[in-house]
Amino acid sequence: MDQPLRIRHIHIESGTLNLHYRAPAEQAQDVADALAASHPESELSVTIDDEVQEDLPPLPCTQLWE
């Protein structure tokens, strides 16, 4: 039986850039890992939590992270 899709809140911040999205848990983690690997010494901060709100836009291009 398939498990229900868990949706998470992903927050991406760097300087004045402050983005909030909702995304499937695995995709949110994949994005966070990719950003951390590609920007290891930057001010980039990515957090993932369960504070999902209905008005959050979906993570753009989620199919790229499947």
Rank of each mutant, 00 (worst) to 15 (best):
M1G: 15
M1L: 15
M1I: 14
I7N: 03
R8Y: 09
H9I: 00
H11N: 07
I12M: 01
S14L: 09
S14E: 14
T16W: 04
L17V: 02
L17I: 07
N18G: 02
H20C: 03
H20N: 08
R22Q: 05
R22I: 04
R22D: 01
A23W: 03
E26D: 12
Q27R: 10
Q27S: 11
Q27C: 09
A28G: 10
A28D: 02
Q29E: 12
Q29D: 05
Q29Y: 06
D30N: 15
D30V: 13
A32M: 11
A32Q: 14
D33S: 14
A36Y: 11
A36P: 01
A36Q: 15
S38P: 03
S38E: 15
H39G: 03
H39M: 09
P40C: 05
S42T: 13
E43R: 11
E43V: 00
L44W: 01
L44M: 13
S45Q: 07
I48T: 06
I48H: 01
D50R: 01
E51M: 10
E51Q: 13
E51N: 14
V52M: 04
V52W: 00
D55R: 08
D55K: 05
D55E: 13
D55N: 10
L56M: 12
P57G: 10
P57M: 14
P58V: 04
C61F: 14
C61A: 13
Q63G: 06
L64H: 11
L64F: 13
W65P: 01
W65V: 08
E66M: 14
